[in-house]
Structures are given as C-alpha cells and as structure tokens.
C-alpha cells in the first residue's frame, strides 16, 4: 500500500465556451491521449492530479464543465467553492473570445470571491486560423486582472504550465494569508487526510451477486 500525502487539495474549474478544448486540456494534463474527434461534455468530467509546487505536493480536483449554452444553468451551480479556474477560449474563434466577459461575470459572482482565474487561449498550434491576437487577449486579461497563457492541448504546449501557474498563485495567497484554507467554501482542503490509497478499493459491505460487473 502506497500512501501519497498531499499538503492541500484544491477545487479547480475549467470553464469557457463549447469546443474551445476544455476537456482536451484536462485530458492532456492528466496524461490522456489527444483526441481529434469531438465529444461534447455533458455534466461534469472530473480529473485529478498531484502537482509539486515549491516542494509542496498539492492535489488538484479538476471539474471540467460543459461549455454548451444549453447546459449553462446547471454548470453554474458547480462554480461555488472553487479555489481556481481556467477560463478557456479558442484562439481560432472570435466568438469564443467575445463571450469571455459573460463567463467571467458568472465565475466572479458565483464562485468564491477570491477565486484565482487564469485566461487560456487554446489551440495555439493552429496559428494559420488565428482570429484572436495575443496582444488583445493579454489586454483583456490585464483589464480583468487575470493571468494569461496561450496553450495547445494538441501539442501539450503550456498545458501543465497553466494549471501550475494558477496553483502557484493560490498557494502564494495562502502563504500571505490572503486566502484562508479553513474558510468554508474556500475550495481548499488540507491534505492530511487526502492520503490516497492505491491498493484495491474498499467496497461497501453488502453486495448482491448479480450486480457484480461482468464484461
């Protein structure tokens, strides 16, 4: 039995319009292969990863939400109590950039007021179809006090960077006392109990025979 002790656990959101590559970013980050074919997220897809930031091992609980407008009202209900968020647009889609302020407003009002948001311009690899320049996006980021990176979920460029940068900022704020991990709804848990059992999972006691999963 291997026990990984983590110092903190952060709740992390990935938000932004449909098709901007949120799920692809998450998949790349947690080590899954990039998929060309498109598969909309319905509900929430979870991912988690333990990262090491300045000697502190921190676990990210990542909530990749559905970007389609018709799911908006439901996904908004998951914003609360997130410590950090990646706000994703697609550099090849002006539309996805134009809706950023709506996403931002939701995040700021619904998530914890101290949420750390990093703006992500994804699909950096598709330079030839770029519709949003780096400069105008950085300006938007600056105006809205966001950090900013351009990434590619396809090549993996800057993906880990994005998650790490956001986490670093959260940790720094914890250290300066600006963020209080003990405040309920901070989206931060202490890691003492988050030791992950890598042995066979414990199963609830009672089980009915025919529900044993067959493949």
């Amino acid at each position: 039995m291997l026990i990984l002790v983590t110092e903190y656990l952060f709740k992390f959101l990935v938000i932004g319009s449909a098709g901007t590559g949120k799920s692809s970013l998450l998949n790349n980050f947690i080590g899954n292969k990039f998929k060309e074919d498109r598969c909309h997220t319905i509900g929430v897809e979870f991912g988690s990863k333990i990262v090491n930031i300045g000697g502190k091992s921190t676990k990210l609980q990542i909530w990749d939400t559905a970007g389609q407008e018709r799911f908006r009202s439901v996904t908004r209900s998951y914003y609360r109590g997130a410590a950090g968020a990646l706000l994703v647009y697609d550099i090849t889609s002006r539309d996805s950039f134009n809706t950023l302020s709506n996403w931002l407003r939701d995040a700021r009002t619904l998530a914890s007021p101290n949420i750390i948001i990093l703006l992500v311009g994804n699909k950096k690899d598709m330079e030839e179809s770029r519709e949003v320049t780096f400069t105008e996006a950085s300006q938007f980021a600056q105006e809205n006090e966001l950090m900013f990176l351009e990434t590619s979920a396809k090549t993996g460029e800057n993906v880990e960077e994005a998650f790490l940068k956001c986490s670093k900022t959260i940790l720094a704020k914890i250290e300066t006392g600006e963020l209080d991990p003990e405040r309920i709804g901070s989206g931060i848990q202490y890691g003492t109990g988050t030791s992950k059992r890598l042995s066979a999972p414990k199963k609830p006691a009672r089980m009915t025979p025919e529900c044993a999963c067959r493949v």
Binding site: I42, G43, V44, E45, F46, S48, Q61, A66, F71, S73, V74, T75, T194, K196, R197, P201, K202
Partner: peptide
C-alpha cells in the same frame, strides 16, 4: 476518488444535465 468510483458521480451529473 479514493474509493475509485468517482465515475459514478460523473454519471449521475451527466444524467442530471441530460434530464434538465
């Protein structure tokens, strides 16, 4: 996640979205 069944929760949420 520690109990290795986070996908069950994911499933519930997905169906909830589908329904809503």
């Amino acid at each position: 996640e520690q109990e290795s069944c986070r996908h069950l929760l994911e499933f519930l949420m997905a169906v909830m979205h589908f329904r809503d």
